[in-house]
Every structure is written in C-alpha cells, then in structure tokens.
Amino acid sequence: MRSKILLSSLFAAATLMTVASCSSNQAVRTTDGKTIVTDGKPEVDSDTGLVSYKNAQTGKTEQINQNQVKDMSELDN
C-alpha cells in the first residue's frame, strides 16, 4: 500500500515538473487507466493504427496502438 502511494506521488510530481517546463504537453489516457504525458502533440498514423509521441518524462519517442488510447488532450499550464 505504501509503495503504491509513493509511486503515485512520484509520478504526480514528475508530471507536474514536466508540465511546468513545456507549454505544448499533452495527456494521453489509455484504456487501462494510465496517463502518458507527451512533449508536443502525438501523431496518429491511420495506416498502421499507431500513435507516435515523445514521452515528456524520458525524452524517448514511443508508440502505442490507437485502440489502447482512450483520449488525448492538451494540458493547461
């Protein structure tokens, strides 16, 4: 229980720090309840069904299946 609270707190702090550093971040919410903060707007490839984004926390470009994305929205600063 403590580890879940600690992990949630660390994720929230990292998300807030990331949001504060960049004005164009987006939140990608997945069907399994996770929230991914992206640096810039994710790109949707309709041919492959993949959503490409730069992970704001790690700086790496990643992809996720479009059917795993619940919604995407711009974060307010």
Rank of each mutant, 00 (worst) to 15 (best):
M72H: 03
A56Y: 03
I36T: 01
Y53D: 01
N67A: 04
M1H: 13
M1W: 12
K4T: 13
S21D: 15
Q26I: 06
S8Y: 05
D45V: 07
V28I: 15
D47N: 04
I36V: 10
S8D: 08
Q68D: 13
L75G: 05
S24Y: 15
K4H: 15
T18Y: 08
A27H: 12
A12D: 14
V37T: 09
M1Q: 08
T48Q: 06
T38A: 07
T35C: 06
I36C: 03
T48A: 05
T38W: 07
V51S: 03
Q26H: 15
T61P: 00
M17N: 10
D71V: 00
L6K: 09
E62S: 09
Q26V: 13
A27I: 15
G40D: 03
L16K: 10
P42M: 00
A14M: 14
N55D: 15
G40V: 02
T30R: 02
T18I: 14
I5N: 08
Q68A: 13
D32N: 15
V28K: 00
E43G: 03
D45W: 04
N25G: 11
T58W: 00
M17W: 10
V19N: 10
Y53W: 00
F11I: 10
A12S: 09
A13T: 08
T18S: 14
E74N: 07
S8T: 09
Q66S: 12
A56I: 01
G59W: 11
M72E: 07
M1P: 13
S73F: 14
G59C: 07
S52F: 03
E62R: 12
V37I: 15
T18K: 07
S46D: 04
A56Q: 01
L16C: 06
E62T: 04
D76M: 08
G59L: 08
L7A: 13
T61D: 02
G49C: 04
E74H: 09
S3A: 09
L10P: 02
G59K: 06
T35P: 00
N55C: 07
E62I: 02
K41T: 15
L50P: 07
T35E: 04
V44T: 03
K4R: 09
T18V: 15
D76H: 05
D32Y: 12
P42W: 01
L16E: 12
N55Q: 00
S52Y: 03
S9R: 10
Q68R: 15
K54N: 13
E74V: 10
Q66E: 08
T48N: 04
T58S: 13
K41H: 11
M1Y: 11
V44G: 00
V28T: 01
V69W: 06
R29Y: 04
E62L: 09
T48P: 12
V19M: 13
V28H: 00
N55S: 05
D45Q: 09
